[in-house]
């Protein structure tokens, strides 16, 4: 399993449009992808679940990727999150 942490810098938090692109990216992966903040965890392949977490600026999220292509998936997601949030 690959994990990484990131603190959201975007004033709008994890808002719809880039969040949508993030979910799309996760959906392409063969691995299980989760996003967690504190106790709450959501499947990163599910848009409503991710939006439902209402992740805001300043909050730290942990993304974990588990599966065959975890290495590439984690890398791609990390880059996308860093440059969009």
């Amino acid at each position: 399993m690959k994990t990484f942490e990131y603190t959201i810098k975007d004033p709008n938090g994890l808002h719809a449009r880039p969040a949508g692109l993030l979910v799309q990216m996760a959906q392409k992966s063969a691995s299980t992808v989760k996003i967690a903040r504190g106790e709450k965890t959501a499947d990163l392949k599910r848009l409503f679940a991710v939006m439902g977490m209402n992740i805001k600026q300043g909050e730290t999220v942990t993304v974990s990727v588990d599966g065959a292509d975890e290495e590439e998936t984690a890398k791609a997601l990390n880059e996308f999150i860093k440059s969009n949030f």
């Binding site: 719809a16 449009r17 949508g20 799309q24 499947d43 392949k45 599910r46 848009l47 409503f48 679940a49």
Partner: peptide, 11 residues
């Protein structure tokens, strides 16, 4: 595009 994804969402 987001609207489309909403309709495709598993939840």
């Amino acid at each position: 595009e987001i609207h489309k994804m909403m309709l495709d969402d598993l939840d």
